[in-house]
Amino acid sequence: MKRRSTFLMIVLGFGFAFFYIPILSMIVYSFNASRLATVWGGFSTKWYVSLLSNDKVIDALFLSLKIAVISATVATILGTMAGIALARFTKFRGRVLFSGLVTAPLIMPEVITGISSLIFFILMADWVGWPGARGFSTITLAHITFSMVFVTTIVQARMIQSDRAIEEAAMDLGSRPWQVMFDITLPVISPAIMSGWLLAFTISLDDVVITSFTTGPGSTTLPLLIWSKVKLGVTPDINALATLMVLTVGAGVVAAGIIMTRAERRRLADERMAFRNND
């Protein structure tokens, strides 16, 4: 089993160093007292102080969170519907186009999605007078559109895996299809729906390209703010911001990992118990 492991383990070690050295370096330099972001000038937390007292950053963060929560929620509802439709309704008119429409945004370069959304919004404003001004609403619409297909992919995969018989069983026991949907189907796929929401939320929170095309004056999300600063070069307050974001996300992922490991361990224990009282 452990063949060639020395070589593989060395590559693995270098690989993880490659993954994490840039991030660690960024974290270390966020505590750099020097204004020159890449030259070490002693330890300081002043960049954190200036960051947290910067209203622009705080406003951008809240705008990003607002857009991410709303777009992830709408995208989850629409994406779940599309996933259920594709997994369960095998025959309907326009199914081929529909399944194309839920895959295309996954591989469409963001530049193209961004530009086509922008052109669409500009022309719509010209033709029907809506949207009057670009900003929060146009960003949210664009985010919903390209993140819903990720939800669809996750939900569809989960639906295909799940045992169709449990839905039939519920119907057999007297439930109408819509009741089956709420009693059985949705509860059973709820973990997939939750990961879909989380993914949509993260995608929205992280997006630069599409947001930069669909935004308007006064609507600066956090990635847009970082983007405009980073284009000019490395600055110490971005290091501090990056550190805060990486640590927040890292803590979240580690916590989720621990919870999942615990749940897995409990499930295994349950299964052993079930095996013991097997009659």
Binding site: I23, S25, Y29, A242, V246
Partner: peptide, 25 residues
């Protein structure tokens, strides 16, 4: 989990981290 972790952190900041490393100083 360590492979997936960078996925969840900002793409922009991962690019930015290399800007710091590659700079002249």
């Amino acid at each position: 989990m360590l492979v997936i972790l960078p996925f969840w952190t900002s793409f922009l900041l991962r690019v930015y981290a290399w800007m710091g490393l590659m700079g002249k100083n």
